[in-house]
Design a binder for these strands. Sequence first.
RNA 1: CGAGGUGUAGCGCAGUCCGGUUAGCGCAUCUGGUUUGGGACCAGAGGGUCGGGGGUUCGAAUCCCUUCACCUCGACCA
Length: 493
Amino acid sequence: MAKELTPRSEDYSQWYNDLVIKADLAENSAVRGCMVIKPYGYAIWEKMQHELDRMFKETGHVNAYFPLFIPKSFLSKEADHVEGFAKECAVVTHYRLKNNPDGSGVVVDPEAKLEEELIVRPTSETIIWNTYKNWIQSYRDLPILCNQWANVVRWEMRTRLFLRTAEFLWQEGHTAHETYEEAEAEAQKMLNVYSEFAENFLAIPVVKGVKSETERFAGAVDTYTIEALMQDGKALQSGTSHFLGQNFAKAFDVQFQTREGKLDYVWASSWGVSTRLMGALIMTHSDDNGLVLPPNVAPIQVVIIPIAAKKMTAEMNEKIDAIINKIKALGISVKYDSTDSKTPGWKFNEYEMKGVPVRLAIGPRDFENGTVEVARRDTLEKMNVPMEGIEEYIQNLLAEIQKNIYQKAANFRDSMIRKVDNYEDFKTEIEKGGFILAHWDGTAETEARIKEETKATIRCIPFASYVGDDKEAGVDMLSGKPSKCRALFARAY
RNA sequence: CGAGGUGUAGCGCAGUCCGGUUAGCGCAUCUGGUUUGGGACCAGAGGGUCGGGGGUUCGAAUCCCUUCACCUCGACCA
């Protein structure tokens, strides 16, 4: 009765919105474009953070924190950068309120105008490079490998929970290096960290590649990306890593003494993933019954639901406690839901909505047979499993589910990548969704025309090969001009 | 910013066209009891500035003016 999702086939977008609300992940707030991330949604984000943070540290990075506010003048120092972000900045102009003389509440005190306005960071390159200038004198001070966990604000016209909000949470890495090669390698390395994280942890298959000039980060020399494919056939940019060259070092005059005793500008990279990954996670795996979570990110990995809990004997409760303890001992998070205000049927649906990977039901029948009913969320299969050794069974099952969820997504993604050689076919194929590999002459004009006419954008030039000859030269499907290799096109979020 | 739409109980809605007792319904909540293997049942209870302001009227959720907010779809973007 209460909670029914709009089926994906009926309205994918509505399904997504329903799911975010009904799985208790997030909700719209009183502030335009800003969401409240609810405890269950935040628990998933925390698991992502935890794993990413571990991976960053393992690759030699350290965490730091830089200010939320950026002096307006900083933003204009790198020409492309300001161009890219100027239209979506929140600006602080005053520092004080006062009571309205007419008694109608508070108003901004016009006396308290700031000398220089402050921008709420849309990203932190400028404040960080202004800071790095003081940290770097010699090659001995390099590399600097900093990350920060932060919130940023981009005043978007239209917002959607997790996918695009005015304020969002993310991490941003900002590194400084002696050489072109080292900074470039860092950008590549972090892209690999992201793709490993997406695939192994979130079970989201991604295509790694380089962005076209049009899609590149404002101020970067090259932008690398991981692109995921959602179930409705649209692409979602899920993480980016930028080789910044010496652009920010020049803008903020960050020079260092080289090993040869000369002065040179520092080479840079930056990289980030955001709460948008929550959107990717939801849209990659979930179904019409609700969220489907890979065991690695599930805040609750196993839920145990007693049947007729009030009729349980002390001996039965002891057996259940023993099972819980054995599962916990294996490092598996388990929730025992014995509240009697809800029926088992209600709970079955509720935990399916929330994507809990494994559900156990234990009732009178099971105590008679010495079994437990095990249900897996990914396939919705139910099995009766002996109570004895149930913990190992679950441990294996969780691993199996993690693998299965990834494989299912990978099969779908692969089935949606195809090669197209002429523009007419392209227009037909793009309607069906998915990734299309087609030859592109490398010009912004052709790219813009394709976007204008088909709403498809170049997601990236993939590093790996997907359809055999996609790394071979050819001719642009639209202009007929020579093309070095195929680009990956899709409609995107 | 363009085009549509919606604001009535915690949530979802009816009532508005055509003004008239005490503003309804479902879910949720609370109390008590019975239940429990796929969204239970019975009995009782609480909960409302009808988005805000102004006007018309004997009388406004309903008509008029004004204002605010939110949602969906476009253009912009992680």
